[in-house]
């Protein structure tokens, strides 16, 4: 638990979260959400929750991004906001 490192990664997580909801393209939002998940996994690894970080690295950054990309592929990339 090093709070300086934790603070830097938390700022990156918040930036990735804002980016994921504000980019005007569904595919880009899905990819940014994958980056958000991976940064979140780093944050949990710093806090000592290794099992949770492992799960998030495989689930959030791996499988759920693929689900999003598959859904966007089958629907549309167009978004108004």
């Amino acid at each position: 638990m090093i709070w300086q490192l934790d603070l830097i990664i938390m700022v990156l997580v918040i930036a990735a979260g804002i980016g994921a909801i504000s980019v005007k393209d569904n595919l880009g939002a899905a990819i940014l959400f994958g980056a958000y998940s991976f940064l979140m996994c780093l944050l949990w690894a710093i806090m000592g929750a290794v099992d949770v970080a492992f799960t998030e690295a495989s689930v959030g950054a791996g499988v759920s991004t693929v689900f999003f990309v598959a859904a966007v592929f089958r629907t549309t990339r167009r978004t108004k906001d």
């Binding site: 994921a20 569904n26 959400f33 949770v52 759920s64 978004t79």
Partner: peptide, 30 residues
């Protein structure tokens, strides 16, 4: 606020991970 359904789902996931982050930071110990 967002009108797009995929954006709403991404928002729901961010909400979930925020709650998970809260629980994990409760479990941290100096």
């Amino acid at each position: 606020v967002k009108k797009n359904l995929v954006k709403k789902i991404i928002g729901m996931n961010i909400f979930q991970t925020a709650i998970i982050l809260f629980y994990v930071s409760i479990g941290a110990k100096r």
